[in-house]
Simulated assay, not measured.
Amino acid sequence: MDQPAYAAAALYAALNALILMWLTLATALVRRRHMVLIGDGGVAHLGRAMRGHANAIENIPVMLVLLGFAAALGAPAVAIHVLGAAFTFGRVVHAWHFTHERAAQWQRAIGFGLSVATLAAAALDVLGHAIILLFIQA
């Protein structure tokens, strides 16, 4: 068992959980400000905050599962750090874009780009490790 790789995966799990908490609180604050309990109430800023939170919920768990499997399948800690740090930075930039009523489009583009690129890299890494272990080393 490669403790540093697991520790790296755990680090990014914790950091991304904090991002989710930030998005949850940001959405709750907009809800409170506009007194909207369910849905977006036609409030554009609330719809934006909800979409940013939903996007994080759609992407973060998949990446964390991939990082955990990468560590379990023998990926070095440095690979987990590279993927985890790039993904987490992308999620922070993306969250920043969605928590503000008006934000620069480059934030969304950078956040999306880093998230998708690192998800793809992690998926290919795990796929490669799994194929090697299942078919080549069997």
Rank of each mutant, 00 (worst) to 15 (best):
Q105I: 08
L83H: 02
A75E: 06
G74H: 07
A104H: 13
H81Q: 07
G84V: 09
L64G: 10
L114A: 08
R108L: 07
L83P: 05
W106C: 05
F89I: 15
P61C: 07
Q105G: 04
L67K: 01
R91Y: 03
R91N: 04
A86P: 02
R91W: 06
V93C: 08
A95T: 07
G111E: 07
L73W: 08
R102V: 15
A103N: 10
F112T: 15
L83Y: 03
A77V: 04
P76W: 07
A85Q: 01
V93H: 01
G68M: 04
I60E: 12
V92D: 08
W106N: 11
F69W: 05
A77N: 14
R102F: 05
R108D: 01
W106P: 10
I60M: 04
L66S: 01
F112V: 14
L67H: 10
G113W: 11
H81T: 11
G113A: 14
A75F: 02
F89S: 14
I80S: 03
Q107A: 10
A79D: 08
T99G: 14
P76K: 03
A70P: 07
R102G: 08
G113Q: 12
V65A: 14
A71I: 03
W106G: 12
L83W: 01
I80G: 00
W106E: 10
M63C: 01
A72Q: 11
H81N: 03
W106R: 14
G68E: 06
I60L: 09
A109Q: 11
A75K: 12
G113D: 04
G113T: 15
G84M: 12
A70W: 07
